[in-house]
Structures are given as structure tokens and as C-alpha cells.
Amino acid sequence: MENIIETENITFSYSEERGKQNPALDGVSVSVREGEYVAILGHNGSGKSTLAKLLNMILVPDSGVIRIGSDEITSPNFSEDDMFRVRRNVGMVFQNPDNQLVATVVEEDVAFGPENLGIPREEIRQRVDAALEAVGMTEYAKHAPHRLSGGQKQRIAIAGIMAMMPRCVIFDEATAMLDPAGRRGILAIMDSLNHEHSITVLNITHHMDEAARADRVIVINDGVVYMQGTPAEVFARVDELHAVGLEAPQDTELIELLRRMGLPLPAGCVGFNACVDALARLYEGGAR
């Protein structure tokens, strides 16, 4: 598969006098293949959200190259029309569910994106219905957003992005303000976006268990790519994660600690079931 997102050595600094302060991003090169499910991990202030904003052209890098599909969005002759093409291909779901809903009726809000794109009315109708169906909010189509829970609002926000039919959706800490139930719902939708709708998903998060669901994990620390690999590869390096203030998911970490105590356990167990299986095998082996 070809790359849908590619960054080459990008730097970005928030301060006016560049170079004086620590840059938020200092030479980041990452690439995401079409259809991939990638988690970007990092503690607060690591630069992970800055990366997301650069990919959606909310911010412009100081140097380096960003390519979205075949468009080089950092090129100087990149026009505004090109920008809209990029944005319709790369949707973004933000942290605060309240601050991204525009309309006073759910279905109107979902229609907002397609309306901006100038899609014919009949098609908007179909897209809105399909998007609401995909996030399981069909029955709320006529509701007012402020009456919904945080998780429900976030689903509407996702539906609003889906209705634009992007190739890639970036979740910028989209679960950070939700309760556990709301979070589980959103994660399930992320999975289904990737698996059923074959949309590239980029989940920017500091929850390890969310990262464990991805195909690949990229850890950002102090504006540089600190580690990347499959969740199993990354979470096996418990010490390196600790060094930058991150922790592997608790189940993975438990297995890893037991393994270091000398128990015959496999390295890099990711996911609840895998961990339980590993422990069960160990137990059976010990009993025998």
C-alpha cells in the first residue's frame, strides 16, 4: 500500500523567536500507509497534538516536508483549493466534543461537512443517514446536541467527519474527556472505521490500552520520534517507556515484569486475551 501521510524531518516551534525555545517538533519523519491503524503516543507536551495539527494544515511547519497522498502540503505553491482537497481526505476529531458541533440539530451537524463540500442534497441525505448508522446514533438524528452525553456528542462529531468520506481520520485525544463507557464506544467505532470502512485511522492518545488496539505505535517524546513498531514491540521495552514517563498497559507490564523475574513468558504480550492466555499457559505448564 502507498503512504497516505508522510512527513520528512519536520520542525515546528510555537514561540515567535524561533530557535530560542525548545521546538515542539524537532525533525519528525513518520509515514502512515493507506488503511493502517496507527497510534501516536506521548505524554502531555510531547508534541503529538502539534503533529496532528500540522497534518491537517491548522499549523504550518517551520521546515520539512509533509505529503498527504500525492499532495505536498508544505510546498510553496500549494493553493487554498488544494487545502480543501486535503482536508476532505483527512478528517479530524478533536478532544472537546462540545466545541466541534456547529448546528442545533444532530443531523444538520453531520451534514455540515458535506454541505461545505457542495454535495447535492440527495447525496447529503444518504451520507448523513449512513454516517449516523455507522456510529449507532440514527435514533438521535433530530435531537439537540446539548442534550446528549459526551460520548454521544463525540459520536456525532465522528459521523460529521465520516459524512465527508475521508480516506483518513485523525483522532486528537478524542477520548480524553469521556467517561469509560463513552470511551469504549468511541474506540469500537475507531476499530470499525478501520476494519469495516477501510479508513486509515490515526489515534493520538496517551492511553496505552488505546494504543494497544493499533497496528503500529509511534511514540513521540520531546518533539522527536522516540520509538515505533507494533504494540508488542513497543510495549516490550518497558524501561524505555518508563524513562519518558509512559507505561505499558498494565496487563502487558505485569507479564513483562514476571518475565524478568525469570518466568517463562513470551515477550510483548499485548491485549487482555493474549496476556491471559500467556498466564494460563504458564500455569498449566507449572502444574504439569
Binding site: 455540515f112 461537512g113 454541505e115 442534497r121 447529503i124 448523513v128 465527508m164
Partner: peptide, 20 residues
């Protein structure tokens, strides 16, 4: 936040907009 979210959803004023 809202302005950024709207821009990300390709809002560019009433020009060329359709309606549900």
C-alpha cells in the same frame, strides 16, 4: 476550537455550499 473544527470540515463561507 470551533473555528478550527469548522475549518477542518472544509467550511469556507456560503460560497458553493449546498444544504441538507
Amino acid at each position: 476550537d470551533l473555528a478550527i473544527a469548522m475549518e477542518c470540515r472544509c467550511y469556507r463561507g456560503g460560497e458553493g455550499r449546498t444544504k441538507l
